[in-house]
Design a protein around this nucleic acid. Structure first.
Lengths: 240, 240
DNA sequence: GCGCGCCATCTTCCATGCAAGATGGAATAC
DNA sequence: GTATTCCATCTTGCATGGAAGATGGCGCGC
């Protein structure tokens, strides 16, 4: 069920033809996805398959097939006979994305909270470790580090729920919103509140309180949403 | 943002679904998806792209690209240099699927319940109409009709939440579980309970009780899950 | 100057060819 | 009889060419 994601670091430049890894389609997919994530391909940019193929040192076919997968993931749109459009995120997209993670994180927390006690305790410990990292980054003024630890917390929460479909959905959603998260990291005022809420989620899981875990995870995401969306509107960030 | 899906899922826009029959890839995608849905392609069957292309009267290329989309949707698996494998659903897959719809239906109900009053009332009326159809089918012993009306209720609930990403996720999940729903329709004992629960969801939406709507939708799906999964295990339905 | 149509050009869509990996069965060794 | 090797065949991965649609600029009419 797990899609093979070649997670090699992307060289955005010349694609030297070296070792034979997976398929060229996977290479093209990974390269394009990473380029979109780090904004090498800016949103709104309209690329041609020929040009990308040339840059990656392959023919148009694997680029085309990778573009289909990226479109399915919601990262680009293939305009018939016009080209590949890198999609931008509007505030309304962020609203949609938040509603999905509110639902998923809540159910995931609930599921983890009803695991057998040993698994529950291990999960809570893992989650607390990530929260510790967030607190340390916060104390040290390391904003990117805070973001990484925060992402790790939520990724661990989903992973512990042991649901491949939920994992893939959240992964796709995260790919879409990665740019926005990077941009808005320094806009978010209440890092401390997040840390406290993460503690509450882990504690509810530790005690096996499914309802409390569900509620804590939901409220955490809902607060983040209510905090971020007005900021996006205020700053007029029409496309992220 | 709405991808042109052959079955016409899309956002609310005045534009009519013209169903442009321009792309062979779309044709192949729709044909293969429908064949999988109604079990013309049985799970476990390993098809060759050449054979499908021949049957659809096109070359291998559009079939191959459609297969990529179907794989992304979780309906098939493309085995490198071996063929296209129609995926089967195990009870564990149904567990995963139910957890996703529990999360999504709950959030959707909550979102609909906080709409402005006019929209809320209209939504509740639509939902009740579907529930009426379920009751009528139940009274008339029309099991397939009951299933159609039940699906319409849940589709309407998601649609009213006005979240394209949620719609697409639920649509993909439904595509995966369609066969299983058809098979298990006559195994489910408590149709009457579903009808009563649907009424509760609609009522909570009507009164704008977000928490009650969330809980009613969640409990409805959770009960269905707890009812169905043991049946699947009992009957030894390893692959659906 | 201004609007309109035409066409050169750019782009994807799809068919097809070639190459390489995977497979099953036959032939062989023991 | 059993295990092993080899190869004919089937399959997809990828490259490439022709075809058709979309676009923007240029010239023409006014």
């Amino acid at each position: 069920m797990a899609r093979a994601r070649a997670d090699g670091t992307s060289e955005a430049q010349g694609a030297e033809e070296g070792e034979k890894r997976g398929s060229l389609v996977d290479d093209a997919y990974a390269a394009m996805r990473d380029a979109i994530r780090d904004a090498s391909f800016a949103p709104g940019y309209q690329a041609s398959e020929q040009e990308i193929a040339l840059r990656l040192g392959m023919s148009r076919t694997p680029v085309h097939e990778a573009a289909i997968r990226l479109q399915e993931d919601g990262l680009v749109r293939v305009l018939p006979r016009k080209g590949i459009l890198i999609l931008a995120l509007a505030p309304d997209d962020m609203r949609e994305i938040y509603d999905v993670v509110i639902a998923m994180d809540g159910r995931a927390a609930e599921l983890v909270a009803v695991l057998p006690e040993a698994a529950r305790l291990a999960a809570a410990q893992t989650l607390d470790a990530h929260t510790d990292a967030m607190a340390a980054a916060h104390a040290g003024g390391d904003l990117p580090g805070w973001g990484v630890a925060d992402a790790a917390f939520h990724a661990a929460l989903i992973a512990q729920a042991r649901n491949g479909r939920m994992s893939r959905i959240v992964q796709a959603i995260n790919d879409q919103s990665h740019r926005a998260r990077m941009l808005t990291l320094n806009l978010r005022p209440t890092l401390a509140a997040s840390i406290a809420e993460h503690r509450r989620i882990a504690q509810a899981i530790r005690t096996g309180s499914a309802g409390a875990a569900l509620d804590a995870a939901r409220q955490h995401r809902i607060r983040a949403r209510n905090e971020l969306l007005p900021l996006l509107e205020r700053f007029g960030l029409k496309h992220l």
